[in-house]
Nucleic acid binder design. Sequence first.
DNA 1: TCGCAGTGCGAACACCGTTCGCAACGCGCT
DNA 2: AGCGCGTTGCGAACGGTGTTCGCACTGCGA
Lengths: 226, 226
Amino acid sequence: MATRRERLREQTSAEIKAAALTHLREGGGAALSLRAVALSIGMSPAGLYRYYPNRDALLTDLIADGFAALAEEVARARDAAEGDAFVAAALAYRAWALAHPHEFALLYGTPIPDYQAPESGPTSNASRNVGAAFVPPIIDAWRRGTLRSGTPGGAAAEPAPTALKTFAAAVDLPPEAAAVAFAAWTAIHGLVVLETFGHLAWLDEDPAPLAESRFRALSLDLGTAP
Amino acid sequence: MATRRERLREQTSAEIKAAALTHLREGGGAALSLRAVALSIGMSPAGLYRYYPNRDALLTDLIADGFAALAEEVARARDAAEGDAFVAAALAYRAWALAHPHEFALLYGTPIPDYQAPESGPTSNASRNVGAAFVPPIIDAWRRGTLRSGTPGGAAAEPAPTALKTFAAAVDLPPEAAAVAFAAWTAIHGLVVLETFGHLAWLDEDPAPLAESRFRALSLDLGTAP
DNA sequence: TCGCAGTGCGAACACCGTTCGCAACGCGCT
DNA sequence: AGCGCGTTGCGAACGGTGTTCGCACTGCGA
């Protein structure tokens, strides 16, 4: 059972994380300073070290939470979709990134120097869940038999790299569909990351229709459209 | 004509940039310190400010150079390709990112806080050149008539968003082919950025065959394969 | 030859992450 | 009930950062 001390500690820990998240949202990860966080919850900078061994540990916690929030958001949109669940999931992914650019940058931007996510640590698992959130619509299409398979024009299918089999096993997908899922995930991410980080700014126009159009085309291509 | 002073200044400027690049390659952008750069070329930290108004300006210079180098590398591979020029360009893009991860992170990772690339500044132009490097094979395919157009299965083509027309004009591409070029660019980038930043590490396997297979499939899909 | 713009430097400031030793607190055991 | 000690927090300090400022020096151009 949780002693009183443990409950207090948990509470303080959460307060620190919440304050850090606030500071992250306005100013980005590079500007997140422990001193500012400590001050905003009425603590001394040194006091934080009773809860996090260093700054990276705090960021790691935020990263894990971010992955979880993103995965949840995508899954929610996917399940609530009335039309094309795949497109709904992709749009939710994009919307979350644009709504939380600094958190998104923390998740998918420049990695923390020489930081290696511990294998099957909380961040690795959470990260995998984001990719997995796109899988169910692909499974559905595969069951319906509409899923794109092989190459167009009846060309000989590429021999599947063994990494694809690993991927298939990881997301619990039939190997034939793994290539499709992988392609979908990377294509969606490519568009979203370019837009979120400002590399599409030279189209000085709202990229939203472009993204929607692209996602719908992708869904038709892959055979996930209903 | 260039006075002696101007030549010396140019030379010192280049020396600073070269030293900064060296430090960037080992340690990454976050670890690049002006003091270390100054010391490595035998200068005082304050002296650097005669050449760059601040740290961000130095990074911006490195970014512009990085975009140029990447674009050049992609173009070189594309032109030297014997088989599929599109695949060759994509592979060169991936290879450059993996060979220069810290520079790649500077180009496409977390943006510098509240830094806005000046419109038609050196970085914006150079960035556009990277995307443009993928266009020629697409133009070729369009001329040959093999380029994928519309949606598969003869479904009604999406109305082209106006942003796509802007894109088409920017890269000097017929509007019908712009959607293909945009899709190609984002898809390639998505795969490469995920791999470079370590988000594919859980496939504890060499992702190279996966990337090659994906690029070839993409080329077949788009109709750029010879 | 002289003046002054260009160049470099040393010291300083404010901020950062992090460490250390000490003081206070209060939970849990006797 | 009272005590011991793990837990918590803090103040001060250290080494590092980017950046500023005023002063010295140099050598180009008039």
